[in-house]
């Protein structure tokens, strides 16, 4: 009685590695897909451009980006926005 099973045929040359789908839970895959990264980077970029060109504050020589946790707050806001938009898209996709 055979009590073994191998993905390679007898005598077959085995590759150096075999692909394993480690993200079967899908979470990592879902939060790091290309479109979402582009969305996050665009929003962060736009935020930085906006803050940098906020002339009234810059005139006074105060660095807007480093005051009052500005970057942290805006990054958090951007992240939350993109997360919400991601879940909306997921919901729509599941509805189809």
């Amino acid at each position: 009685m055979i009590n073994n099973a191998c993905p390679f045929a007898p005598g077959e040359v085995k590759p150096r590695s075999i692909p394993v789908n480690s993200n079967h839970e899908g979470l990592l895959n879902r939060i790091t897909n290309g479109k979402l990264i582009v969305l996050v980077l665009s929003l962060v970029g736009l935020t930085l451009v906006y803050s940098h060109s906020y002339s009234d504050l810059n005139w006074e020589g105060s660095s807007v980006l480093f005051n009052d946790w500005y970057i942290v707050k805006m990054s958090l806001y951007t992240y939350l926005t993109s997360l919400i938009s991601f879940f909306i898209r997921e919901h729509r996709r599941n509805q189809r």
Partner: peptide
């Protein structure tokens, strides 16, 4: 999955 007496001990793909 080929059903035969394989030997995982000497195989480098065991963890995969």
């Amino acid at each position: 999955w080929y059903l035969y007496e394989g030997n995982c001990k000497s195989c480098h793909l065991q963890s995969s």
